[in-house]
Structure formats: structure tokens, C-alpha cells
């Protein structure tokens, strides 16, 4: 199975919009999926500036899929979704 990469945006907008809570993923993900899913941070995914009037920060990318207004739960759902599709 292909490895899943979770990339959390640590840019200014995402951080103040709740990105801080997403570092819980660091504990939850390895416990749940072991080394099948890798969590890392990105200085900025550059997504808030594209559609800035309707920015949906914080953003997380699960492989190439963007999770907008990300919460731990939303990110975990996306991981599950991609894993099911893979199977």
C-alpha cells in the first residue's frame, strides 16, 4: 500500500485559525496507523492567498487532497477515505 503523507500548513493564517490544534495529529496518527501515514509541517501551503476573500484556513493536505477548515476529525476522515479507496 502506498504511504499517505499528511502536510499541515504552519503559515500565519492557518496557525491563527486553529492550526495549533492540529499537532494532536502527531500523537493520534502513529498510534492509529503506525508508519503507514506520515505527518509533517509545511511553512506555508500557499492556499489562503489564492481565494483570500473566502479563505478556509486552516488547511491540511492529505497527499494531494486539500482539507479546508481542517480539524483533527476531518483529517482522520480523509485518511480513512483514501485508505478505503486504495483497497
Amino acid at each position: 500500500m502506498k504511504e499517505i503523507n499528511v502536510n499541515v500548513c504552519l503559515g500565519t493564517t492557518c496557525f491563527v485559525m486553529g492550526g495549533t490544534n492540529l499537532n494532536e495529529l502527531l500523537e493520534i496518527v502513529p498510534k492509529k496507523y503506525g508508519d503507514k501515514v506520515k505527518v509533517s509541517g509545511s511553512p506555508c501551503l500557499g492556499l489562503c492567498s489564492i481565494n483570500w476573500e473566502y479563505s478556509k484556513a486552516p488547511y491540511v493536505k492529505v497527499n494531494n487532497e486539500v482539507v479546508a477548515e481542517a480539524t483533527v476529525e476531518k483529517v482522520l476522515n480523509e485518511i480513512e477515505r483514501q485508505m478505503t479507496n486504495e483497497q
Binding site: T12, T20, N23, S40, P43, C44
Partner: peptide, 26 residues
């Protein structure tokens, strides 16, 4: 100092940026 700035330098000079998320201190 800046996420976009770090990405810009990384893109122009081909230096990867690493962030391990571990040190967020609130």
C-alpha cells in the same frame, strides 16, 4: 521569517524545508 518566503527560497535555490511540527509551543 515567513512561510511563503521560505518556500520561495526553497523553490529558487532547490533547498528543501523541513519542519517536524514537534516544537509548537502554544
Amino acid at each position: 521569517c515567513g512561510g511563503t518566503t521560505a518556500n520561495l527560497i526553497s523553490r529558487e535555490l532547490g533547498i528543501p524545508v523541513r519542519n517536524d511540527l514537534h516544537q509548537i509551543s502554544g
